[in-house]
């Protein structure tokens, strides 16, 4: 009786220790959001530029943050992920940046409303200590007629700190710079 109990105990401890040996350390996942609530709400003013379609490249339509580690090699960080889909977040962030810019520049009331569409071709952190955002944008009127003129953009921001957190911050900065270019372009159009 005693022998049977001791054998069972021994076998159970062996199995448990084997299973424990197979366990892996828990992976720490970091979620990032491109869009954050603005510090000041500009409810009394609405932007004359609204963001229409945001078309994101195929390789960006996945949750991992992308890092370019070679001339043509990309690295998807397994632990650093977007909290929401990039085109939604980019659209919100851009709209927020445009609103912010309009509030800063006090746009004219008689300026006609227009809609901007963005094709985001590249949006990554580079191993060359920069972040890159490039693509095209074009305008259309609210009524829906397209303006055939397309404006390319290529925005690069240097990294001043290590880590993905700082990289995301710089990516948000590229969105703000794109908003500036859009506003300028909109002025030239009108």
């Amino acid at each position: 009786m005693i022998n049977n109990l001791s054998i069972k105990t021994l076998l159970t401890s062996l199995i448990v220790s084997s299973l424990l040996g197979c366990t892996s350390p828990q992976i720490q996942l970091n979620y990032y959001s491109l869009h954050m609530p603005a510090s000041q709400l500009h409810t009394h003013q609405s932007s004359t530029i609204t963001v229409g379609d945001v078309l994101v490249s195929e390789y960006l339509q996945q949750p991992s943050l992308v890092m370019k580690i070679d001339s043509h090699q990309l690295y998807y960080s397994p632990q650093d992920l977007w909290a929401e889909s990039l085109n939604t977040a980019y659209k919100k962030t851009l709209q927020q940046a445009l609103n912010q810019h309009v509030s800063n520049q006090q746009t004219q009331q008689d300026q006609p409303a227009s809609k901007v569409h963005v094709a985001l071709e590249h949006f990554y952190i580079s191993d060359q200590s920069t972040v890159v955002a490039s693509g095209l944008f074009w305008f259309s009127t609210i009524s829906g007629s397209d303006n055939p003129t397309q404006y390319p953009f290529h925005i690069q921001q240097a990294l001043s700190a290590d880590g993905y957190h700082h990289g995301v911050t710089q990516l948000v900065a590229t969105v703000e710079r794109l908003a500036e270019q859009i506003v300028e372009a909109n002025k030239s159009v009108n």
Binding site: M67, I69, S77, S126, L159, G163, Y164, H166
Partner: peptide, 11 residues
């Protein structure tokens, strides 16, 4: 290998 963005100065 895990790639982490580096600051310009450290790079």
């Amino acid at each position: 290998a895990k790639y982490v963005p580096k600051a310009a100065s450290s790079n």
